[in-house]
Design a protein around this nucleic acid. Sequence first.
DNA 1: GCGCTGACGCGAT
DNA 2: CATCGCGCCAGCG
Length: 114
Amino acid sequence: MQDDSARDRILAAVRAIPRGQVAGYGEVARRAGLPGRARLVARVLAANDDAALPWHRVVRADGRIALPPGSAGWREQSRRLVAEGVQVDQGRVRMPRAGGPGRLDALLWGPDGD
DNA sequence: GCGCTGACGCGAT
DNA sequence: CATCGCGCCAGCG
C-alpha cells in the first residue's frame, strides 16, 4: 500500500514546493504523510523520471545538497537553485530565516517573506 | 535470510 | 561551525 501511493504523495509534496524555496527530505516526507521516511524520499527522487519535478528544491536538513559534491547532479541542482534566486554557497543553501534559534521545525526557506 | 550501502536526521564532541 | 557516530528505512548482492 505504500508502494506507488507513497511515491505519488512524495512527488506531490515536492511539486508543492514554491519556486525559489527549498525543503528538507524529512520535511517532504512528513508532508507526504510518511514521517521518518526521508531516505525513501531520496530513493524516489533518484528513481523519478519526471523532468517537470522540482527535485532540485529538496536538500538536506542542514541546507546542504545531498548529492556527492562535484557530481553532475550536484552541479545541476546548485545551478538550478541559483537560477531560481536561491542563494547557494559551496553546495549549501543559505537560510535567511530558519537560522534563528529554535526554528528547526520550519525547514522551509525562501529568498523573501513567504 | 543476512549484511552492506545510501540523494537522511539529529545529538554529541 | 565542522565531524563523528548511531538510528531508521528500503533496495541489492
